[in-house]
Simulated scan of single mutants.
Amino acid sequence: MANLVWLITGVSNGFGLALARTALAAKHQVIGSVRNKNASADAVREIVEKGGHVIEVDMTEPQQSIVMKVQAAEAKYGRIDVLVNNAGYSILGGIEQFSEDEVLRQYRTNVYGPLFTTQGVLPGMRTRRSGFIVNISSVGGQDSHATGGLYGATKFALEGMSESLYYEVKEFGIGVLIVEPGLFRTNFLHALETPKKILPEGYKGSVVDKTLGLFSGMLGKQPGDPDKAVRRLFEVVTGNGSGGKLRGKVLRLPLGMDAVERIEKKTRTVLADVAEARKLEEDASTALGK
């Protein structure tokens, strides 16, 4: 595939920075976004030295601001071929703990921001009848566990939006991919936030309390290699390499065997529930028929 113009949000570290490096090494054009260039000076310097560009976008900005910044970035090369909505963060805790401000900030970053960047690129992609939109979700976007209620809610929302987008833009030659990473050795766990409200005493020893205690011990021990994951993602988007055969054929891309197995398990429970509902409906239909 010819060299592409990428817009990747959240390139200060983790998957975003690794993907920017991969695309630049392949001689593609990269525009990355960070919330603050000074706070991400090392990443900004590396990307610029390798021929990329970096803009400042806070994913909690108002709709018009984000759309305008995306379209200004698009004007640099006259197009954006691939949008990767990678920027995001997680606040973990019991549902009882979250304040309104925490809920709004989590949704603005993980849902509203990607929605607005997508609105920024769609007119150009639709006119050219080509493009690819990649939304970085999480295994938690399919299978939400204790403490992940708010984060999972935003990723479920992102996936719901992405599913609709897939059907809306397919006829314009625009592809959509939902990426669901498992646990990888990025700074994701290091950057986890918890609610300002202390976990109520009644939760002591509960699944919420125990789960929160697990994360600190997992730092640096996550099974996934982020560079390998990014390489697979890059192949699926560009249609090259072993992952290239999946381009345009899948809507979801779980990354990491832990994600694959967890989603498989979740799917089995959903199918089991649906099977029980089928029996109930069939029994009800039979009873009404009599």
Rank of each mutant, 00 (worst) to 15 (best):
M1T: 12
N3E: 13
T9R: 03
V11E: 04
N13Q: 15
G14N: 11
G14M: 12
F15K: 02
A20Y: 10
T22V: 02
A26Y: 07
A26T: 01
K27R: 10
K27G: 06
Q29Y: 14
V30S: 02
I31D: 01
S33D: 03
V34K: 00
N38C: 02
A39M: 12
S40T: 03
A43D: 11
A43I: 07
A43P: 05
V44G: 07
R45Y: 07
R45L: 12
I47T: 12
H53I: 06
V57I: 15
D58P: 00
M59Q: 15
I66M: 09
Q71T: 08
Q71F: 04
A73H: 04
K76V: 13
G78S: 10
G78K: 09
I80L: 14
V82D: 04
V82P: 03
N86A: 07
G88L: 01
L92G: 06
G93N: 09
I95F: 14
Q97D: 13
E100P: 00
V103G: 01
Q106G: 02
Y107R: 03
Y107I: 05
T109A: 14
Y112C: 11
Y112G: 00
Y112V: 02
L115N: 08
Q119V: 08
Q119E: 15
L122C: 09
L122A: 10
N135V: 11
S137V: 13
G140R: 00
H145E: 13
Y151I: 14
G152T: 01
L158C: 03
E159H: 02
M161A: 08
E163G: 01
Y167E: 12
E168K: 03
V176Q: 06
V176K: 02
L177G: 07
P181V: 02
R185G: 01
T186S: 07
N187A: 14
F188D: 03
K196D: 11
Y203W: 09
K204N: 05
G205L: 13
L212I: 05
G217Y: 10
L219A: 04
Q222V: 02
P223D: 09
P226C: 03
V230C: 04
V230D: 02
L233Q: 04
V236Y: 10
N240M: 12
R247H: 06
R247E: 10
K249L: 13
V250A: 08
L251W: 04
P254F: 03
L255T: 01
L255N: 00
M257Q: 07
A259R: 00
A259L: 07
K266N: 08
V270A: 06
L271P: 01
V274F: 11
A275F: 05
E276M: 09
R278K: 15
K279S: 14
L280M: 11
L280C: 07
E282V: 13
D283K: 11
D283V: 11
